[in-house]
């Protein structure tokens, strides 16, 4: 029985080139595999750590630096824009205030001028009114004088017609005064 089993195993094993063990567990290959693994992995580690990875790291650093720089430039430009907008608005506000001041000044000046002219006109009219009133008073006085004269003349003429003689001026004046004074 044991012989048969061994024979079968050998026959089966014979199908494998190296004869026998399951290849991954064939310890006769371990030494070679380890040597080539050490060589290959050692070479790979050196190539990656000394050449390849620093190159990738440099590219990524450059990109990050560029992005950061661009963002900083953008922020700087934005603050410049904000400053420009602020100064523009300040200029606008100043101009507006200035314009208002000029308008107010002009209005005040025109007002003052108008007032002065109105006052002059009023004074002029006042003076003219007074002159007219004085004239009226003078006219009235003169008219009153004339009334007296007419009254005296009329009295003298009436007395002459009635009495036939011409009264003296003094008598007429006294009579008129008496009459007017009453």
């Amino acid at each position: 029985m044991a012989t048969t089993t061994q024979a079968t195993t050998e026959a089966h094993g014979g199908a494998h080139a190296a004869g026998g063990a399951f290849p991954p567990f064939d310890s006769s290959t371990f030494g070679s595999q380890l040597i080539w693994l050490a060589l290959a992995f050692g070479a790979l580690y050196l190539l990656m750590s000394k050449v390849a990875l620093p190159r990738v790291a440099r590219i990524l650093d450059e990109r990050n630096g560029k992005i950061t720089g661009d963002l900083e430039t953008a922020a700087k430009l934005k603050s410049q824009t904000d400053d420009a907008i602020a100064s523009y608005e300040k200029a606008l506000a100043d101009a507006r205030a200035n314009a208002q001041a000029i308008a107010g000044e002009t209005r005040d000046k025109l007002q003052a001028e108008t007032d002065a002219r109105r006052k002059a006109l009023e004074a002029d009219l006042h003076a003219k009114l007074e002159a007219a009133e004085a004239q009226i008073v003078a006219g009235k006085t003169a008219a009153m004088q004339n009334v007296r004269g007419i009254a005296a003349d009329a009295t003298a003429a009436i007395v002459q017609q009635l009495v036939g003689r011409t009264p003296s001026t003094d008598e007429v004046d006294a009579a008129v005064s008496q009459s007017l004074g009453r």
């Binding site: 199908a15 494998h16 080139a17 190296a18 399951f22 290849p23 991954p24 064939d26 290959t29 070679s32 595999q33």
Partner: peptide, 8 residues
Amino acid sequence: DPIHQFQL
């Protein structure tokens, strides 16, 4: 043989 592929 499915094992043959692992033969060195």
